[in-house]
């Protein structure tokens, strides 16, 4: 499956503001005496979290392979856990089992809240005007509680990205106000695939993308999400497996790329494409390839992909493949309405 997106939606994500629903992730609150132990036992990351801090992690299975892409946050004594991968019922069951053994309890945020995501280089400004200027300064990977509203800043596109959980009672009026304020920001509703392409371009792991074809954290360059001396579900199997024989590398191709395409150097097969999308800003395709270790390096222009017997040159690159506008937009200096008066570097 190659991601192809609507240019208007993509433009909103990369240059203005975009709105979406949380289709694939499920969010839970773990609370009670054993909340820390419960969360700590399941996720791979060291939970050195100050209050309101978040961290990406993984949940593995007993074989040390990825079951879920996890985002963990600490909200005082409670833990916010967002999981993507397993079906929500399965994720909940696993959390509840771990919690009940440790004196904690689990509730799903979707039981009580409606979620909306905001993405884009001016999403911070929209969020500030919508819910309050306190939110403008939220650091990346932090959470903020505004009464019963919970805001997570944890985008995976390289632009400012927020997930807002609104209590059901307030959701309708709040969303109506978002709609209204959003007009000043050219807010557009975008499909998940648009965000998925942005994630791919920025080198963020997608469990539905490359994660559909490989579940090995070492291969997927996700060892940074694994705590060094930590014990968690699947730790032993992961460590026993040792270094991987393959590693993912990002690639670009002027012609089409398809998941499953073989990668060759000359006539030697060295890997395959796992995930791909058609880029909007420049013609061509971007993808994640799984390559045998000796060949897994950025900066190589000599490989080819083979699709239905036809070869086309690819080059390996170091993501992000663009100079995100959000790197240069500063909440202390810039605003969407005045954007024409600033000069930003090319994206």
């Amino acid at each position: 499956m190659t991601i192809a997106v609507d240019a208007t939606e993509y433009h909103a994500v990369r240059f203005a503001t975009a709105r979406s629903t949380l289709e694939h992730a499920s969010a839970f609150i773990i609370e009670g005496r054993g909340a820390f132990e419960t969360t700590d036992s399941l996720v791979t990351a060291d939970l050195f979290l100050s209050d309101a801090q978040m961290r990406p992690a993984l949940v593995l299975d007993e074989e040390g392979l990825i079951r879920a892409d996890a985002l963990v946050g600490r909200d005082d004594d409670r833990y916010v856990v967002c999981l993507e991968g397993p079906p929500p019922a399965g994720a909940r069951a696993q959390l509840e089992e771990a919690a009940s053994a440790r004196g904690a309890s689990v509730r799903a945020l979707t039981d009580t809240h409606e979620a909306v995501a905001l993405t884009g280089p001016y999403a911070w400004e929209l969020l500030g005007e919508w819910l309050g200027s306190d939110l403008v300064g939220m650091p990346y990977l932090s959470l903020f509680r505004l009464g019963e509203i919970l805001v997570l800043r944890a985008g995976t596109t390289g632009e400012f990205g927020y997930e807002v959980f609104l209590p059901r009672g307030e959701a309708e009026p709040r969303l109506a106000s978002l709609e209204k304020i959003g007009r000043d920001f050219d807010l557009v509703t975008v499909a998940q695939s648009t965000l998925d392409l942005a994630a791919l371009e920025n080198g963020f792991f997608s469990i539905r993308g490359e994660g559909a074809r490989s579940r090995d954290p070492a291969e997927l360059q996700l060892r940074w999400r694994v705590g060094r001396d930590k014990s968690f579900l699947g730790a032993d199997a992961l460590r026993a497996r040792g270094p991987s024989t393959h590693r993912v590398t990002w690639v670009r191709c002027a012609e089409s790329l398809c998941a499953g395409d073989a990668i060759v150097v000359g006539d030697l097969a060295i890997g395959e494409i796992l995930h791909t999308g058609s880029t909007v800003l420049r013609p061509g395709y971007v993808g994640v390839a799984r390559l045998a270790r000796p060949w897994a390096s950025a900066g190589v222009a000599d490989f080819e992909r083979v699709h239905a017997g036809v070869a086309a040159p690819i080059r390996t690159v170091a993501p992000p493949i663009l100079n995100n506008r959000s790197l240069h937009v500063s909440p202390q200096r810039h605003g969407y309405r005045e954007r024409a008066s600033f000069t930003f570097p090319e994206v």
Partner: peptide, 15 residues
């Protein structure tokens, strides 16, 4: 981290 555990495409800042 051990140096060889640092994957090449790992983000430096934030995450």
């Amino acid at each position: 981290r051990d140096a060889d555990e640092i994957d090449p495409d790992v983000a430096l800042f934030g995450t």
